[in-house]
Design a protein around this nucleic acid. Structure first.
Lengths: 354, 354
DNA sequence: TTTAGCACTCAACATCACAAAGTGCTAAGT
DNA sequence: ACTTAGCACTTTGTGATGTTGAGTGCTAAA
């Protein structure tokens, strides 16, 4: 049930939001008249601001201060008032020169997170989708006592780990183990791998159990590494004026260091590819002063993971959104480039999918 | 030219350091008499403290405050007065249950850094030695369009990366490339790999240049990833009272986010395996309020890297040192365990060393 | 419906006084 | 010659008080 604001109120709300995003100071009626060329007197603006406050779009820190946007105010601004902004050439160049397509999907995620963090001066978090499934496993003997195990996932991530073995293993034993692993694990979601591995060791592989146990333990260790990665950018966000209070800083650092909070922040909240969760829209109370903007990364309609930006409610929504939209395009191109190569000159991707 | 302190002065200095480490408050003469059972009046203590201050062991924040240790004071304490403390059973258990020996040397470094960070509530930094040399390279075809390149180093680190290729490559071409890579790269220090790779591509490998270029680019990307890794623990250190000032917090976060500063902090400063650099002994000015304690990790007299702890000057030296010493032992056992296995039942390590 | 004018409120800052902690020095004690 | 009691002195921290300035809400007039 959204109130229909008249044009003047929209202009006022939008100006308050934009001024506050820029200055971090409560915005007064006089500032608005002077800076935003509203053709009304400050008294008129004041009346409207009062109404906007009653309707819940604005808040007043105290009676003799200007107004700041409420969560509802930011929401209205983002949904109805904000003008899309083109990303600057500098930023575009920076993105293009940094995303180089080396490495697997994981590596590209990290490169992207790093770029975004730099452009927006804000911490970013990568969440990889753990519903990804195992596509193929290879075991390679790299020396007498070391096996390299390579796990390829359906969505193009390659994980690998080293198993140290104590017994001498014949090449054909390795081949057999590899094929048994593949028979059992192909199609298994990575997050269930743990269970399936335990079953294998009990059921099928008594014969090789010594070596197999090493292999399985190594895989377990590898997949236990976290799928979420905080890409710092913390040092920059601390320069913003909302972090002039020591408690805020500590709470923030604590928050982004706490896995559970980040988990909850990044729960999928709607079906948009670009999700914006503002202030108190966050379920997690500690996040109520922050905004989390997440971009879902997909490939061939498969969800690969997401890239999230965490900042104060007073973040530059327009720039953040245009950056993420550009990144999305870039990401698709980088991934598609890989696929196209495969389709044109060989058939890695088809093969993987069959 | 170290002044010889008499017993009473030693006791006073040691008590001031220990009380200040515990309380973070300047220590007064009365506190010393009461809490540390010095059998002298506060006036006597005051006289001695004055002398200790004149000699540079103590400082006074202002005239009506107690004393705090100077860098020289901490140094004297660490070198002459500190009593070694056994690590608690809880901590020992925690270390033993966490360091599991999975993964390669890199992984073990990370596990160790994580444990130390938790036990000491302090940020830790891992520095891997980049004078390590390439021992062996393998190229494995993991699908039509993906090659896995495995780099094994002399000191037991395994790095690997994926190369996406566009041309079909025969198995024997891969074998040839592998052997050319090995001929050229074996013995090359990792930090010079970059240059050598450029030479190879110019000189030897025109024939495979397309594929080879992909391989080489992937290797370059992989080795460009940083050898230093900050293992957070920042959230805990911020709770310490020295971080009640907002500027201190920001400077600290900035400092540990700045690669160059960390680099300089970790420069080898002496020949001890356990190096302790206190406050203004740090070359880097921004580190003058902090102490960096680093443990060199070696295997068979080869320097593998180091594990460093960064904290306020007022850190718990005794506990930090005993933790690191225990970690050193643990680390050696874990590495030796690997070697022993190899010696007893096969010969991976000898082979690698020949 | 808009606006000028004005009384009112509140945060932020400065000023002041005072208590608490701890020193340095002097003079007396051992 | 060393130790100590006693006391004046210094400085920080805290709370009380006053002042300033920004910005509002309301009233009454346009």
């Amino acid at each position: 049930m959204k109130m229909n604001l008249d044009e003047r109120k929209k202009k006022i709300l939008s100006s308050v939001v934009e001024d506050y995003i820029e200055s971090a100071e409560p915005v007064g009626s006089k500032t608005l008249v002077e800076k935003y060329h509203l053709d009304y007197s400050s008294a008129t603006i004041r009346n409207d601001m009062k109404i906007l406050e009653k309707e819940g779009y604005l808040e007043q820190p105290h009676v003799s201060a200007g107004r700041i946007p409420s969560t509802k105010g930011y929401r209205y601004y983002v949904d109805n008032l904000m003008k899309e902004k083109r990303l600057s050439m500098v930023d575009i160049d920076y993105i293009n020169s940094t995303i180089n397509g080396f490495g697997d999907v994981d590596d590209i995620f990290e490169q992207v997170a790093d770029v975004v963090s730099k452009i927006l001066s804000t911490p970013t978090v990568i969440t990889r989708n753990n519903t990804d499934t195992i596509e193929n496993i290879k075991v390679v003997k790299i020396s007498e006592k070391l096996l390299l195990i390579v796990l390829m996932s359906k969505n193009g991530t390659v994980k690998d780990c080293i198993a140290k073995i104590t017994d001498v293993v014949e090449d054909n034993a390795i081949d057999q183990m590899t094929s048994i692993l593949n028979q059992n694990l192909t199609g298994t979601p990575i997050k269930e791998l743990h269970l399936v591995l335990n079953n294998i060791i009990k059921k099928d592989l008594k014969a090789y159990s010594g070596v197999m146990e090493e292999i399985i333990n190594s895989i377990k260790y590898e997949i236990s590494k976290d799928m979420k990665k905080l890409n710092s950018g913390v040092e920059k966000i601390l320069e913003k004026p909302e972090f002039s209070d020591i408690e805020t800083v500590k709470n923030f650092i604590n928050m982004i260091s706490t896995k559970e909070i980040i988990d909850s922040a990044l729960e999928k909240s709607n079906n948009n590819k670009l999700s914006i969760v503002i202030g108190s829209e966050n379920k997690e109370v500690l996040l109520n002063d922050y905004t989390v903007i997440s971009l879902d990364i997909e490939k061939d309609n498969k969800y690969l993971g997401k890239l999230s930006v965490i900042g104060p409610k007073r973040m530059n929504y327009a720039k953040t959104i245009s950056t993420l939209k550009y990144i999305n395009k870039k990401f698709n191109n980088t991934l598609k480039l890989n696929s196209k190569d495969n389709k044109v000159k060989g058939d890695y991707s088809e093969k993987r999918r069959k």
